[in-house]
Amino acid sequence: MSSKLVEFKDVSFRYGEEQPWVLKNCSFEIFENEWLAIIGHNGSGKSTIAKLMNGLLFPQEGEIIINGKQVNEANIWDIRKDVGMVFQNPDNQFVGTTVQDDVAFGMENRGIPRDEMIRRIDHTLAAVNMQDYRFTEPHRLSGGQKQRVAIASVLAIFPQVLILDEATAMLDPKGRKEIMQTVSNVQTSQKLSLITITHDLQEVVQADRVIVMNAGEIWEEAKPRDIFGKKDALRKIGLDVPFIGILADELKHAGIAISHEPLNHEELLEDLWTLHLKT
């Protein structure tokens, strides 16, 4: 089994002494090379988890361990070498005048030699299929292309953990699909731990494990298929069920014996085709 890379131990957080707790006694682990999805409605605490993991915030109670090091102000820069983060709006992360300059920025701050920087720029832009845009000004890119560059900029510092905090929220359906495919390819090729934070259940299909947040607490932790099987309960906590799950339920109610909870159209079609061959 892979070793633990991230640990949350009874973590609680609030944005002020008079404010309600945003997180309440949260405990979970993330393992090397694992894809973990954290989902929940707005205000459930999922984005606060991301900021705590990257040292943008610190818990009032409990502790967070990243790669054997406790997250605190004394070692925050060491933590940020291990944890990279991509936010909802990529424009907030751009600092360079060209795509190449932007990818180089984080490496320059870490004193990485020029030859190594050039090698990493080539490698990371190829990983997100943006090598043909290296001299393009970021503001000329589409939303999906900007997010690809933001991902490349983080990958260039060789993090062990990559966090995407609502990174597809501003994209159209085609852009979302492309980014999630890029993320899947990167996670496989780079062998890093990936954490995707979203309110969209359709984005968790490829994850190894899902944590569902509700009112600052862990509501459920399971594999995607098991999470998708709790449609009514998910609706009660404000999460939209993917269309494919709704369609599968309607088919079951119509007497069509779908054998399992489908995660995508391909699985549903395979089930229907198998049933057709048996009749």
Score class of each variant (00 low, 15 high):
Phe105Leu: 00
Asp249Pro: 06
Asp165Phe: 03
Asn67Trp: 03
Val149Pro: 01
Ile163Lys: 05
Ile66Trp: 06
Asp10Met: 09
Glu266Phe: 13
Arg110Leu: 15
Phe243Asn: 09
Glu217Lys: 09
Ala254Gln: 11
Asn25Met: 09
Glu7Pro: 08
Thr48Ala: 10
Ala152Ile: 03
Glu29Phe: 06
Leu162Asn: 03
Ala127Gln: 10
Gly229Leu: 07
Ile30Leu: 14
Gln88Trp: 11
Ile157Val: 14
Met180Arg: 07
Leu57His: 06
Gly43Met: 06
Phe28Trp: 13
Gln206Lys: 12
Phe135His: 15
Ile218Gln: 03
Val71Arg: 11
Thr198Pro: 06
Gly96His: 13
Phe135Met: 14
Arg14Leu: 01
Lys81Glu: 00
Phe87Ser: 04
Gly45Glu: 12
Ile197Gln: 10
Asn75Thr: 02
Arg209Thr: 04
Asp165Pro: 01
Gln60Glu: 14
Ile66Ser: 08
Lys9Val: 14
Phe8Pro: 03
Ile246Ala: 06
Asp122Tyr: 03
His199Trp: 05
Glu203Met: 02
Asp172Trp: 10
Thr188Val: 12
Leu263Asn: 00
Glu178Val: 14
Asp91Ala: 02
Leu52Ser: 09
Val11Ile: 06
Ile197Ser: 11
Leu263Val: 05
Arg134Gln: 13
Ile38Gln: 01
Pro138Lys: 07
Ile246Arg: 08
Val241Thr: 03
Ala126Gln: 14
Trp21Gly: 03
Met117Arg: 15
Met130Lys: 01
Asn109Trp: 02
Phe228Ile: 12
Gln187Ala: 14
Val22His: 03
Thr182Leu: 08
Ile38Asp: 00
Lys81Met: 04
Gly216Lys: 02
Glu220His: 07
Ala37Asn: 09
Tyr133Leu: 12
Ala150Phe: 01
Pro173Met: 07
Val154Leu: 02
Leu141Met: 08
Ala74Lys: 13
Leu234Glu: 05
Pro90His: 05
Arg140Trp: 13
Ala248Met: 02
Glu32Thr: 08
Ile66Lys: 08
Phe105Val: 05
Phe243Gly: 00
Ala257Val: 09
Ile76Arg: 06
Ser184Lys: 14
Asp132Ala: 15
Val95Pro: 04
Pro224Arg: 02
Glu61Asn: 11
Asp115Tyr: 06
Ile195Asn: 11
Gln147Asn: 01
Gln206Tyr: 11
Lys231Phe: 08
Glu108Ala: 12
